[in-house]
Design a protein around this nucleic acid. Structure first.
Lengths: 201, 201
DNA sequence: GGTTTACACTAGCGCTTGCTTGGTTGATCT
DNA sequence: AGATCAACCAAGCAAGCGCTAGTGTAAACC
């Protein structure tokens, strides 16, 4: 009966669920609401997902997987300099938030609702993504592009970026590219530092 | 019966509610859980609050009010230079998150659960707080301490600061003071710029 | 042609939810 | 001594919750 595979139908249902989870929050979204949005009856929902928890896990897995793929691709395609790589990561992050917004908002704000098993499984994906960031931050620090505590800097940057989902308007004049440029400029005023330049911290 | 005043008992109950809301989230926190934490029966709870919504509003109002008071005080006590004022605001913000953490986490993450009436009332408080920030950011921009788009910079800074509630460990070695210093250093490398110095953006 | 599979349906069980009702208690005030 | 009042309780209602059981059906497979 209940399938755990990756059927296209399930993917579509997951996308719809993400939208509702963002609109209402996970707890307030009932299986009946989900079913209606999907055009089926609530009982039929459990043919695709074992339980409500599994829908949440599917949404978050989808979003995180996409973000990871996009970030890796961006790092491969960009230049070698620390500032280019920093910019590429910031831009990829923001573009993911734009194109795949629902899944990411859910991942950020409903993570606590995952049961321990799902959380354990998905935290590996998330760690992989955060490792990409820490590596790029390390490179920027080593190149003298930015200064300060590695741990703090990376968390400040992640905070600034993740917070965008609360105010960013995709219809507005500012594009992800613009935001990424502005952020890098803010924390690394000299965008093309001479390699090996050391600055007092 | 139902009182809307500010009795000390109600304040204490609000504090307990904030703690539960952080632990479980607003939706998952039942009135029975709240009552048990408060050492009363669920029915008695409605003597102090009209409904569950009003408890949420009370928690958020309390937290935002404190933050506003603390920020104003910090700005009065600190020096006049842009970097000092920026640092004072960052520090006040982080200290509030530390000493009054529960209420602030609720304000940040359960805002959507407020009904329109409460949201309208509380948004004025929040706007007053954010105006303080925008003014300080403006001063820093005018002094050449930081550069860039006023709108984007203030939101990046708020994001970096608010995100701290997700990773900051009050028991750890880093104090709010340290975080504030590091953040200001990150976005304003020259902490004591000559007044009137203009820099190419 | 019979069996399997994928997907949907109806009906409803057992439980929890926010909140109400009607009443009791003990301290404070006049 | 009587009145007042905040604070609390026991009991329970109506609605909504996640989820299950059992069935129908059309296409796909052997």
């Amino acid at each position: 009966m209940n399938v755990v595979n990756e059927s296209p139908r399930r993917k579509e249902l997951t996308r719809l669920a993400a939208q509702l989870f963002v609109q209402e929050g996970f707890d307030r979204t009932t299986v009946r609401m989900l079913a209606q949005e999907m055009g089926i009856k609530s009982g039929s929902l459990f043919h695709h997902f074992r339980d409500k928890q599994e829908i949440l896990a599917a949404v978050i897995e989808e979003g995180t997987q996409n973000a990871l793929t996009l970030a890796r691709q961006a790092l491969e395609e960009c230049g070698e300099s620390a500032s280019e790589r920093l910019h590429a990561m910031a831009r990829a992050h923001l573009e993911t938030l734009l194109t795949d917004r629902n899944a990411h908002v859910v991942a950020l704000y409903e993570w606590r609702r995952l049961d321990p098993a799902a959380r354990d499984h998905l935290s590996h994906l998330r760690d992989a993504y955060e490792e990409l960031w820490e590596r790029v931050i390390d490179e920027a620090l080593a190149a003298g592009l930015i200064h300060g505590d590695r741990f703090l800097v990376s968390r400040f940057v992640m905070g600034a970026l993740n917070w965008t989902v609360r105010w960013y308007d995709p219809e507005g004049p500012r594009k992800p590219e613009d935001l990424a440029r502005e952020l890098v400029a803010m924390i690394a005023p000299a965008t093309h530092p001479r390699p090996g330049l050391s600055t007092k911290v």
